[in-house]
Design a protein around this nucleic acid. Structure first.
Length: 496
RNA sequence: GCCAAGGUGGCAGAGUCUGGCCUUACGCGGUUGCCUGCAGAGCAACUAUACGCCGGUUCAAAUCCGGCCCUUGGCUCCA
């Protein structure tokens, strides 16, 4: 069974075949660090993470690069902004540093596999300049007034990703650029001078106070002082850290045009090779009627959501819809994810406990082994079909149902079947979907655990003696302390 | 206006490429029962018989074809 992926370039699901069968080159268009990351970003990250994990599960090595855009007018706009008594940063890169720090914290809190490199634009200006020079030499770009533009009329494939023609694209970039450009659809590779004050002002907020005046970085170039254009960075960094031709290029659907279209033009014009063979786009995350977005200001920061809901339910929420369909935020949808996670986690705990039960036997005939195989097969089929995480998850729930039924119906448990159930949950649910079944309280037993167990022992004695009033008091007291007690066939269980 | 994605039961969300075995997908919610000293969890049953609208093709359509309506995204910074 082979993996098939939906390629934006062809508009079809295609068999996935990396150029090097051992190593997948994966580039993901990361964030512009002008604000805190929000749930829309988190959804994208989790899906890229699951894709990364699935490729590794299939046996591929994955070289995963994720850029950080730290040169941008919106970042400059926040220079000097008051932030908790201090300032957010007194330079463009200072502000960027501040947000990058938060970004990495957010990523860690979502249990994401780390990319190999998180390259920053500000550290790749020489590569960008080299690439622009190549484009000029090859006749695909021209200098005008100290800025450099890509000449779309020289690139016949322009529009192949977004299915447009040059005529469809009315204009790109700022109004005042138009007279510098030969064709209105031409786009900037390099912008002369510093940031324009009016674009900064546009992004400044009246709700915020600023302590210093903004300034953007500029770099020396063959065309004078200036700044790199928005699209060229990804081409340069993808080539620098991966190769001139890569397997997968990913990003949000809102990047298809113009960003990815322009990346293709720049890179393929410069190298003559196919830039990326598979373009995968994560669909957008919406708040009721419109997409969640930094610019619309309708977002929930990642850190807040992780605090409120926890990493596992949040990840479960995201994989409950496939990456290439839109997902809408609502309290009810989050509530459902919390409930589903509870079911999954409770089942995991129950199965793990049953393995230690004296009722677990090595020689018990049951259908559980078959259920494990069915689940693994269904999971694999779902993931191989363009990473259908919702169906993959359904396979795990089927398995959990089978295991619950088994424990429910039997006096003797199928030790091997249960063992394999746990392994499957850990491999597919943990390893691939990125759940952490051990939870925050996992690890060594603490003094708190020992004390809880001591109380539970006392409670068992009371129950055995028929002193239910006393037993219920103990349970209530523990509840007040935040310990949830459940009696099971295999003795009392608790969660902190 | 141009380009793209989508409209599925109370909610959420697969299935559409590769028509049928396509279904109570997996769940959430609701009702009832079993289990339990009680509670919780679990199990069982029931609940929704839905595929935007109108035509067409076919023995058979959520799935293919045509038309229409509506929503969303991109065309300006965006995951």
């Amino acid at each position: 069974m082979t993996l098939r992926v939906m390629n934006t370039l062809s508009g079809e699901r295609e068999p996935f075949e990396p150029a090097d069968p051992d190593d997948v080159l994966l580039y993901y268009c990361g964030l512009t660090v002008s604000d805190a990351a929000h749930l829309g970003h988190a959804r994208s990250w989790v899906h890229v993470d699951v894709i990364h994990r699935w490729l590794e599960h299939l046996g591929y090595g994955v070289r995963h690069v994720e850029n950080i855009t730290d040169v941008n007018e919106k970042i400059v706009a926040r220079v000097g902004e008051a932030d908790d008594g201090a300032t957010l940063g007194d330079s463009e890169l200072g502000v960027a540093d501040r947000f990058i720090e938060r970004l990495l914290t957010d990523m860690r809190s979502l249990n994401l596999k780390r990319a190999e490199v998180y390259p920053r634009v500000s550290e790749h200006v020489p590569e960008i300049i080299d690439l622009i020079e190549t484009l000029i030499e090859r006749g695909y770009a021209y200098e005008s007034n100290g800025s450099v533009y890509f000449d779309v009329t020289e690139f016949p494939d322009y529009g192949k990703l977004s299915n447009q023609t040059i005529g469809d694209v009315e204009t790109q970039g700022q109004e005042e650029e138009r007279e510098e450009k030969r064709h209105p659809a031409d786009f900037a590779l390099w912008k002369a001078g510093g940031v324009a004050p009016e674009t900064v002002a546009e992004h400044r907020s009246e709700d915020r106070t600023y302590e210093t005046t903004p300034s953007g970085e500029t770099w020396d170039s063959p065309w004078g002082e200036g700044r790199p254009g928005w699209h060229i960075e990804c081409s340069a960094m993808s080539m620098a850290h991966l190769d001139s031709s890569i397997d997968i290029h990913m990003g949000g659907r809102d990047l298809v045009f113009p960003h990815h279209e322009n990346e293709i033009a720049q890179t393929e014009a410069a190298t003559g090779e196919t830039f990326a063979r598979y373009w995968l786009h994560a669909d957008l995350f919406r708040m009721a009627d419109e997409k969640m977005s930094s610019s619309l200001g309708n977002f929930i920061p990642v850190s807040e959501a992780v605090d409120r809901f926890g990493t596992n339910p949040l990840r479960l929420f995201f994989v409950s819809a496939s990456y290439n369909s839109t997902q809408t935020y609502s309290e009810d949808a989050i509530e459902e994810a919390l409930e589903r996670w509870d079911r999954l986690e409770a089942a995991y705990d129950r199965i793990t406990r049953s393995l230690d039960s004296p009722d677990a036997r090595t020689k018990v005939d049951s259908s559980l082994g078959g259920a494990v195989e069915d689940a693994a097969e269904a999971f694999t089929a779902a993931m191989n079909d363009d990473f259908n995480t919702r169906e993959a998850l359904a396979a795990l729930f089927d398995l959990v149902g089978a295991a619950n039924r088994h424990i429910e119906d039997r006096d003797e448990y199928d030790y091997r079947g249960l063992r394999r159930t746990v392994e499957t949950l850990e491999t597919l649910g943990g390893g691939v979907l990125g759940f952490d079944f051990e939870g925050e309280s996992g690890g060594e037993a603490t003094i708190a655990d020992e004390l809880v167990e001591l109380v539970l022992e006392i409670r068992e004695t009371e129950r055995a003696a028929g002193n239910y009033g006393r037993a219920d008091e103990l349970r209530d007291d523990l509840e007040t302390l935040g310990v949830e007690v459940q009696d099971t066939d295999d003795g009392p269980a608790y969660r902190l």
